[in-house]
Design a protein around this nucleic acid. Structure first.
Length: 901
RNA sequence: GGACCCUUAGCUCAGUUGGUUAGAGCGUUUCCUUGACAUGGAAAAGGUCGCUGGUUCGAGUCCAGUAGGGUCCACCA
């Protein structure tokens, strides 16, 4: 067996094992009768993307779940893939084009799409490669892309089917228009931000009362040429006589009516509102109610058009705003301007203010809204943390039709063909469904020469909402059979960020309910049973990580620095359920350190003797009972953590157990036990028992190093070469297994170690406080009772080593010796140096203070008759025992103090 | 305007149905290159759990209010 090196070097180990796993097909998931399935679909990252901290957390969690499921004996399967990310990808390629002074229109649709495809060819696998570096155990043979042929077919088929079912229609509405990307966006893609601007107070002269004005306030004077009315509240006495009259529009001068509408807030400004239906949602609705015309003064790219009037036409919208204010000023119609902060919608992708714009778009009335609510409300789909279900339900309660068309080229082109020569903007709803005028099918019309296909493509999310079942072969029966749809659907757990709860999670639920297993019960049609929402990773100052701030570390660099395992362990340890995470690189360093600790503990085991030692109950001592007891406890805790998706708690539990209980105590006491031939074999066997289970429990979190150690320690024998074939034991199984080997963990014996630990700790403190921490020639005397002395005797060799002492004798010692009260009697140190009475007195006095306080507190509680009457017996008993202990200690400490001269 | 989250040690955070003396990592102080590990070991300092009330024998934990920070939703020009 090759010797384990002195420190853990991740790079080589990671490369070797990932290749070995792939070669062994260790990540493949196939339906397996009689075994429980466990499936996850990856939230597909953008095909042009690179791994960021969010992906890191998200995918580490998925890998943990999948690897744990394997070790629990489940058939685990994780589907990877990428999303074509319409706007994002198209923008990236257009930016590239611009470098050679070209636009997509210069190339034309076909040539441009060729460019995008070759870009995807070149860059599309980067992020998947990065996921492998992280250790993600995806079934790569199942990798999907939302634009690959089968997937596209499904997306198109779904459009056609939803159209047939009456869920899809074409309508002219005000949409969120992105003047940078030149496309409509859904409401979810708009981010409202406060913007510091100016509020302009403008007066409109009443046409038949020259010199009299109605004043309105606006933040957007450039849209005044689009005004078609002023509106006032019908019950506003100030304007009672004016409704029905007209005023002069102050830019592009023309008379416009004053109408009465309850949408106006009388309290705001002058109580009069300018109505610009083309550029404001409320105004649009007012316009509809009053049958007002619509004057659109903006071009698609946000510049002002001819309808804005000769002075403004052609100007960029913000320059136009300034110009409009100047024109108003010049005509005397600008009453005043004041600084004003209002909320403006920004395009999520392009980060420019969106324009409400009246355009023809395709809309979807969501299917299965009620079922989608039920599934979460009644718990067929469980959210972790649960509180997100409120956000989800609230959105569904107020759900609006989804604008699914995008004026882009990169995406799934809408499968609608219009008869040539048809004016598609004058189609009535009935004509839209007339097959002689509009053709809707996956394959297109048989006589394409007579038709023109819709130019628009579908919103990216209108493809990714099918992800959980299309990746399992839907709707093709043969593919579904091959990919195990029956076995793996619904998937078990979805891990994602709460920021896409509407974009993706809610929509997937509705799609799953609408399209899978028609006629079957709800719990068979949902796309997943659990949804785990991660927190958002922020920087040390709590800011979101972003490219522009440059505050986002590169996970691949972190892997280089700390190893994939160290990074995984570190990131999970700072990611409690449901809370945002402040990234601190020190915690990642902590992960690396843990790996090194694990490495060296296994190295120690390997150096101590060959594998294959057998547990011998006859040689069990209290330390063996204690460590196995703790192992069972931490195993139970891990079960709970996985049940409740508490990953950072799991890591914490494993850390404490392994570092404090195993390394700091058991391994240290082992050194004495290993030196004794009688106890040696059993001690090695106990270590193996603990290490085997611990490696299995750590494997999902830190797969590479555990796999390497598993092999190094020879645990991979017996036909289980890879850890994935090992089985993590439940707490119950651990105990049952031990019992079969004739071993019963004795709780009392295990508990007795606490007293021994306290004794050692006190001894070390006595030394450290006098600067003798490193001296190993110190003698102690312990004034121990019979039972305590028996315990000290039983652990004698270990105690000498642990405390760093040459002798621990039974005896009173002298009052001149530094002393401490331990659970195993008063311990005195035979210090050769003269004792500092003052320091000694101070230390003991402080100790006494603490004890006295606790005694008083406990006495007060026990003296309270309602406590004694009402507290449960166990609590009462605990308090009594505590009081007795404290009083003994206090008395001893008092005696020590008195004897100090 | 509505909903939700956070406030615990110098810093970043745990704290599971209320129950012994509130924990961890990092940082700090002192000592230690002892034959797994200095990516380490030992010891120690450090908290009236944002504030005010209430429920209870008992509150960091439950309730009400309040201050500060954050997130999401919402058509106030």
């Amino acid at each position: 067996m090759p010797e384990i090196t002195t420190s853990y070097e991740p790079a080589q180990v990671e490369r070797t094992w990932y290749a070995a796993w792939m070669a062994a097909g260790a990540f493949e998931g196939k339906p397996s009768a009689g075994r429980q399935g466990y499936s996850i679909v990856i939230p597909p990252p953008n095909v042009t993307g690179v791994l960021h901290m969010g992906h890191l957390l998200n995918n580490t969690l998925q890998d943990i779940l999948i690897r744990r499921a394997r070790l629990e004996g489940k058939e685990a399967m994780w589907i990877p893939g990428t999303d074509h990310a319409g706007i994002a990808t198209q923008t990236v390629v257009e930016r590239e084009l611009r470098k050679s002074k070209l636009t997509r229109r210069d190339l034309g649709r076909e040539k441009f799409l060729e460019r995008v495809w070759s870009w995807r060819q070149e860059k599309g696998d980067t992020i998947l490669e990065q996921l492998r570096r992280l250790g993600a155990s995806c079934d790569w043979s199942r990798t999907r892309f939302t634009m690959d042929p089968g997937y596209s077919q499904a997306v198109i088929g779904v459009f056609v089917e939803l159209f047939r079912r009456g869920h899809i229609y074409r309508g002219k509405r005000l949409v969120n228009w992105c003047p940078a990307s030149l496309t409509a966006l859904s409401d979810e893609e708009v981010i409202i931000k406060p913007v510091n601007g100016t509020l302009f107070h403008v007066r409109y002269e009443i046409t038949d009362r020259p010199g009299q004005y109605v004043q309105v306030a606006t933040t957007r004077p450039e849209t005044i040429p689009g005004d078609v009315a002023l509106a006032v509240h019908p019950e506003d006495p100030r304007y009672a006589g004016l409704v029905g009259k007209t005023v002069w529009r102050p830019l592009n001068r023309a008379p416009i009516p004053i109408v009465a509408d309850t949408a106006v807030d009388r309290e705001f400004g002058s109580g009069a509102l300018k109505i610009t239906p083309a550029h404001d949602k409320v105004d649009f609705e007012v316009g509809l109610r009053h049958r007002l015309p619509v004057i659109d003064v903006l071009n698609a790219d946000g510049t002002l058009n001819a309808d804005a009037g000769p002075e403004l036409a052609g100007m960029e919208r913000f320059a136009g705003r300034k110009k409009a204010a100047e024109l108003l000023q010049a005509s005397g119609n600008l009453v005043k301007e004041e600084p004003y902060t209002n909320n403006v919608g920004f395009s999520e992708r392009a980060d420019v203010p969106i324009e409400p714009r009246l355009t023809w778009q395709w809309w979807l009335k969501y299917p299965r809204v009620e079922e989608a609510k039920t599934a979460v409300r009644d718990g067929q789909i469980a959210f972790y943390p649960e509180r997100w279900s409120k956000v989800y339900l609230h959105w569904l309660e107020n759900i609006q039709d989804w604008c699914i068309s995008r004026q882009l080229w990169w995406g799934h082109r809408i499968p609608v063909w219009y008869r040539k020569g048809l004016d598609r903007d004058r189609l009535s709803p009935d004509e839209l469904r007339d097959p002689t005028k509009v053709h809707v099918s996956p394959a297109g019309p048989g006589d394409p020469e007579n038709w023109e296909q819709e130019e628009d493509v579908l919103d990216t999310w209108a493809s990714s909402w099918l992800w959980p079942f299309v990746t399992l072969g839907w709707p093709d029966a043969a593919a579904m059979d091959k990919q195990g749809f029956d076995y793996f659907y619904p998937t078990t757990t979805l891990v994602t960020g709460p920021d896409i709860i509407f974009f993706w999670v809610a929509r997937m639920i509705m799609a799953g309910l609408e399209f899978t297993r028609p006629g079957e019960p709800l719990e068979r049609r949902i796309p997943f049973r659990n949804v785990y929402f991660t927190g958002i990773i922020r920087d040390a100052q709590g800011r979101k990580m972003s490219k522009s701030l440059g505050n986002s570390p590169d996970p691949i660099e972190l892997i280089g620095k700390y190893g994939a395992d160290g990074l995984r362990f570190g990131i999970i340890s700072i990611a409690p359920q449901g809370q945002d995470i402040r990234f601190q690189e020190e915690r990642i360093e902590g992960g690396k350190n843990f790996c090194n600790k694990l490495w060296n503990a296994c190295r120690f085991r390997q150096m101590s003797g060959p594998a294959g030692a057998k547990l011998e109950f006859g040689h069990f001592d209290a330390d063996d009972h204690a460590i196995l007891h703790r192992l069972v406890r931490v195993t139970a805790e891990l079960e709970r953590c996985f049940r409740e998706f508490e990953f950072s708690a799991a890591v914490q539990a494993l850390y404490t157990f392994f570092w404090n209980d195993f390394c700091d105590w058991y391994v240290e006491v082992s050194k004495a036990k290993l030196a004794n031939e009688a106890t040696r074999g059993n001690c090695l066997a106990v270590q193996d028992f603990v290490l085997r289970q611990t490696l299995l429990q750590l494997h999902p979190f830190i797969p590479f190093i555990t796999e390497e150690l598993w092999k190094q320690l020879g645990f991979g024998a017996e036909g289980m070469l890879l850890m994935r074939d090992g089985r993590v034991q439940t707490a119950a199984q651990l105990e049952a297994g031990l019992r079969e080997a004739g071993i019963v963990i004795d709780q009392t014996s295990a508990d007795s170690i606490e007293a021994v630990k306290a004794f050692v700790s006190q001894a070390r403190a006595l030394k450290a406080e006098r600067g003798l921490g490193s001296r190993r020639d110190v003698k102690f005397v312990a004034a121990a009772g019979e039972a305590a002395w028996a315990t000290l005797q039983a652990h004698h060799a270990k105690l000498l080593r642990m405390a760093g002492a040459t002798a621990i004798d039974r005896g009173e010692g002298s009052d001149a010796m530094p002393a401490a009260v331990t659970p195993l009697g008063v311990l005195r140190m035979d210090a050769s140096a003269a004792i500092d009475l003052g320091a000694e007195r101070a230390r003991l006095t402080k100790e006494r203070e603490k004890l006295a306080q606790h005694v008083a507190g406990t006495q007060a509680r026990l003296g309270n008759s309602s406590f004694v009457d009402k507290a449960p017996p166990a609590v009462l008993e605990g308090a009594r025992r505590q009081l007795a202990d404290l009083q003994t200690k206090l008395a001893e400490t008092d005696r020590l103090l008195q004897n100090l001269k």
